[in-house]
């Protein structure tokens, strides 16, 4: 007798060519989203607002209805979908540039309005698709193609702590930061995604998960080295944790 311990989620399209770079955490993140869609039985009522950047190709992988959004506007598209069809499950999948730089106004206001939307934001401290430029989450000292001597305060200012900012919005029901660097952390990440989806289903408010991810190509590292960097460097600035969970009486706190 055999027991199935792993399967490809039904919410993933079959026979699609994998297009993310080797070692990139997007692949894991997309699979987790698909698994949660399966487990919460959401595939048939889900509508995804896709974004711009590496994250755009998610609609090639997830077998759900999707609307592509201009750069930064996924949360506006998602708001439009949800307000038009409140019975649907509406979510976004965005990079940190899309969510927290060009789309920061849309993100904060969706959270402030308490839109019943779930948002996944991939934080890899760089603009990946365009070749590794400085983004809103680039760490102090980090070298990118547009910060050749490293991010300094004089020219670039500080990186944004997204999960903390979203947690401060009163319409937010759940806000967490997770990582994908170990199996244990991948499990935690999935739990967080589930929570962010559930608060929407229960009509409690805005659900948000920031996922610390790797970009081995632009970081010029092996996948292992990249996960080391997530642990040793990124987590110092971007501390993992649940910043708000109104189902657990956890209110926003400044870290």
């Amino acid at each position: 007798m055999t027991t199935q311990v792993f399967k490809i989620p039904d919410s993933l399209r079959k026979d699609v060519k994998y297009s993310f770079c080797p070692g990139c955490d997007h692949g894991v993140a997309v699979r987790l989203v698909a698994e949660v869609l399966d487990e919460l039985n959401l595939k048939e009522k889900a509508i995804l607002a896709a974004s711009i950047g590496c994250s755009v190709t998610i609609y090639d992988f997830l077998n759900v209805d999707s609307i592509e959004s201009p750069h930064g506007r996924a949360m506006a598209e998602a708001t439009g979908v949800k307000r038009a069809r409140p019975d649907k499950f509406v979510f976004t999948y965005q990079g940190d540039g899309d969510f927290a730089s060009i789309g920061l106004a849309e993100s904060l206001h969706a959270a402030l309005r308490g839109e019943k939307i779930s948002a996944i934001c991939i934080n890899n401290t760089t603009y990946g698709m365009t070749g590794g430029q400085l983004g809103p989450t680039t760490l102090l000292g980090q070298v990118t193609t547009t910060s050749p001597t490293g991010r300094n305060l004089e020219y670039y200012g500080y990186p944004i702590k997204i999960a903390e900012h979203i947690a401060l919005c009163e319409g937010t029901a759940f806000s967490a930061r997770v990582s994908l660097d170990t199996v244990a952390n991948i499990r935690k990440a999935k739990e967080a995604i589930k929570k962010a989806f559930e608060v929407q289903i229960k009509g409690l408010g805005f659900g948000f998960v920031e996922i610390l991810s790797t970009c081995p190509t632009n970081w010029k590292m092996t996948p292992d080295q990249a996960h080391e960097r997530v642990r040793n460097e990124m987590m110092k600035t971007f501390v993992p944790g649940i910043y708000k969970d109104i189902t657990n009486n956890k209110q926003a706190v400044l870290v």
Binding site: I67, R73, A76, E77, V81, R83, A84, E106
Partner: peptide, 26 residues
């Protein structure tokens, strides 16, 4: 029916896109 005081015109027109993608009159 749905009404949102959008945070900007950028957001407003993109909300229309979202709503229209479901076939709604927006």
């Amino acid at each position: 029916r749905a009404y949102v005081s959008a945070e900007s015109e950028l957001a407003a027109i993109n909300m229309v896109i979202g709503a229209c993608s479901t076939g709604a009159k927006a």
